[in-house]
Every structure is written in structure tokens, then in C-alpha cells.
Simulated scan of single mutants.
Amino acid sequence: MAMKTWWLYVTAVFLIAATPGPNMLHVMVQSIQQGARRTTASMAGLMTANLTCLIASAAGLGALLKASPMLFEVLRYVGVGYLVWLGIKAWRAPVSSGDGAIEPHARRSIRALYLTGLGTGLSNPKLILFATALLPQFIDTGRPFGTQLAILTGSFMVIELFWFSVYALGGRSLSHWLAPANRKLLFNRVSGTLFFGFGAALLGSKV
């Protein structure tokens, strides 16, 4: 892989990762509800999903999905359903009424945080489209495949981790602003609507 190709890839990934999507929204919500430190478990689940999708793409999943429209449709609808479920959860998340304080969120286990992050990552339309359609374009078939995959995957993971940290810290700061119940309710409705939107985007996506 030529250096200019790598720089093009890094720039594209940096901009794509910075754009708010299901993964970044999930990190911010978990940071607000569970705290920045415990959000690392959710981040680990998301990173596992990233790595899984990138390796699967390299193993030929992208070509398989293109060759089997039915399989792609099944995976797409599963992802849509999961994102809609996250949106419903956000809309129905309770807040207290009367004293203006946020109703405390249950302390979730590390395992639950990890698995929710994993599910969110695997249903992320941006990740699916990137892994199946964009990543293969940066592979030079005339050079060692394994080395290129390691560089591209490693670069992607570092950039994603950077933006996860930014959104987690942003959620920690935002939690103070969300102290009044009416603001918390508004945030729940907005984040829920965004998850619905991501589900609609995945439903209408074509690879």
C-alpha cells in the first residue's frame, strides 16, 4: 500500500468516525447514564464489533453479501430491528417528575454493557457499509495482504478509540446540563429519534 493511499484512508476514516452515528451516540448515552469509567466496557464491545466486521470483510464477507442479496437483506433487517429497539428504549427511559432530578439509572453489569455495545456496533449501518464497500478499495492486490490488513485495521481502531473517548468525555460534561428532568426527557426523545433514523438509513442502504 502506497503512503498516499494510507493517508487517504486515514483521512476518510477520521471524518467518517467523527460523524455522529449509532456507535458515538451509544458511547455518549452510556457515559451519561453509567459514568465515563464504566463506559469503557461499552467501548470494548463496540471495538470488538469493529474488529469483527473488518476481519469478516477481509475474509470475503463483502463479496458474499453482494453475491447473496437474501443474506444481506436478512442481516440488514436484523440490524434495523436492533436500532429501533434502542430507539424505543431511549424514548421509554424514565425520568423523575417533581423535584427536577434525574431518576437514577440502574447500575448495569460490565458484561451487559459490553454485550449492548457489541450489538450496537454489529448493527451500525456506517460500519457495515464501510467494511463491505469501502475497506476493500484500499487493498493493493499486488502487495502482501496480511500486512495491509493489519495496517488498515489498526489505523481504524486507533481513530475509533480516539472518537469514542471524545464522545465519552462529552457525555460526562453533558450529564450536568441534563440534571433537570425536562432536559433529560428531551435528550431521551432526541436520542431515541436518532436511533430510529439510523435504522431507517440502514433499511434504505444499498451496498
Rank of each mutant, 00 (worst) to 15 (best):
L54I: 12
A93Q: 08
W163L: 07
R183F: 01
G60D: 00
E160I: 15
Y167W: 07
E103G: 05
F72N: 14
P144E: 00
K66H: 09
R107G: 09
N124D: 15
K4P: 01
P136R: 05
Q148D: 15
L135H: 07
R189N: 11
P22L: 03
E160G: 04
T39L: 10
S97A: 10
I55M: 12
L169P: 04
G204A: 07
H176L: 12
S109E: 11
I55S: 02
A63W: 00
M24K: 07
V74M: 09
P22M: 06
L152W: 13
A44H: 10
I139L: 15
S68W: 12
T52W: 08
G142K: 14
L129E: 01
K126A: 06
H105V: 12
F196T: 11
V207R: 10
G87L: 09
M24A: 06
A90E: 04
N23I: 10
A200D: 01
S42Q: 03
N188L: 07
A67W: 10
Q137K: 12
I16R: 00
N188T: 03
L202F: 12
G192H: 03
M3L: 14
L129A: 12
W7S: 06
F187R: 04
I139F: 14
L61N: 00
R108P: 01
S57P: 06
E103W: 07
R76E: 13
Y9N: 12
L75Y: 02
A41T: 05
L202G: 09
G146A: 13
M24G: 02
R189P: 03
F198Y: 12
R107N: 10
V80R: 08
F187M: 07
A93C: 02
R92P: 00
V13F: 05
L152V: 13
L115G: 06
T5K: 12
T141P: 01
G204M: 09
I151E: 09
G98H: 14
H176A: 13
G199M: 08
G142W: 07
G171D: 04
Y167T: 02
F156G: 12
F162L: 14
A56I: 11
I88W: 15
T39M: 03
S42I: 01
M70C: 00
L83G: 04
F198V: 03
W85E: 04
L134C: 08
L174P: 02
F196A: 14
G79C: 04
F156L: 13
A181C: 07
L71C: 05
T40S: 06
R107D: 14
M47K: 01
S173Y: 10
L15N: 02
A44E: 05
A12S: 14
T52H: 03
A90N: 02
V207L: 13
H26R: 09
G79L: 09
S155H: 09
R172Y: 05
L135S: 04
Y77R: 00
I159G: 02
F14V: 07
L202M: 14
